[in-house]
């Protein structure tokens, strides 16, 4: 098993703590079937793939993908970028990714290349059709309302809980933020681009997949990883979205 990056420096009062959903993404990306798919998709003779994690949080997933680039993508010359609406998360995630990449280089083989984490809304700050691998562990919990990206409060505790709410509160069906990203995919992904998006049962993954298959442009989507034994809302899956 590949090591999980250290996030011991991360302040979980204001940044989402790695949990089952994060680990499902790690397991899915490093699974035999996905790494085979990705190696075939990004042959090492082609330009370096750009790997973007949206809502990078603690950075554990991006750090894992960067450190284990050779295992996952079959090449270490990938460029990793992250975005998050939470500036603290960007800072912490950069620390996590750098740490994991250094650790990996020291003990095994070359790791992928980390660029930066930038503060922003989803992938809106990225140039169009440049992202080759997009990873998103969205705020997927159904909630009455969707928190706004900025908070006016000066109270430290309220600021922290607002930042945390951004990491999980997904509004109607837990899909409001994910739907915005799904709508942007054609302008964000490159022609060879692939997206991995985590969903919970209440997001109705089968409806999400049907919606993507119904789009013009030959989009494909399927479940490539799942966890949770019960049928409750905590049952999680990762869908892969791509154009063959």
């Amino acid at each position: 098993m590949l090591p999980t990056p250290s996030t011991s420096h991360v302040n979980y009062d204001q940044i989402y703590e790695p949990a089952e959903d994060s680990y499902l993404l790690l397991d899915t990306l490093s699974s035999a079937s996905e790494s085979t798919f990705l190696k075939f998709r990004f042959p090492f003779t082609t330009p370096s793939p750009l790997v973007l994690e949206v809502g990078v949080g603690s950075g554990v997933v991006l750090a894992f993908a960067t450190a284990n680039a050779k295992h996952i993508f079959g090449r270490s010359d990938i460029l990793a970028l992250g975005t998050d609406a939470n500036e603290h998360a960007c800072r912490a995630a950069a620390h996590t990714v750098r740490g994991a990449a250094t650790e990996h280089t020291r003990s095994v083989k070359p790791a992928g290349i980390f660029g930066d984490c930038v503060v922003g809304d989803l992938a809106t700050s990225l140039r169009q059709q440049n992202v080759d691998v997009l990873i998103f562990n969205p705020p997927y919990v159904p909630t009455e309302t969707l928190p706004s990206l900025s908070s006016a409060t000066q109270d430290k505790f309220e600021q922290d809980s607002h930042l945390l709410s951004l990491s999980y509160a997904g509004g109607h069906d837990g899909m409001e933020t994910t739907n915005r990203l799904l709508a942007d995919l054609p302008t964000v992904l490159s022609e060879r681009g692939v997206a991995y998006i985590l969903l919970c049962n209440q997001n109705r993954p089968e409806v999400v997949i049907a919606g993507i298959l119904a789009r013009p442009g030959g989009w494909r989507a399927k479940i490539v990883g799942s966890s949770g034994k019960t049928g409750g809302w905590e049952k999680l899956c990762v869908i892969r979205i791509w154009r063959p």
Binding site: L50, L79, V118, G120, T124, S125, R127, Q128
Partner: peptide
């Protein structure tokens, strides 16, 4: 922020996305 990263970033406004002047 590395200069390399700037190669992949542009103005976040929707109306600027398709405008050549928004990059770099």
């Amino acid at each position: 922020m590395k200069l390399l990263t700037l190669n992949f970033l542009t103005c976040a406004r929707k109306t600027c996305k398709s405008n050549a002047a928004a990059f770099p």
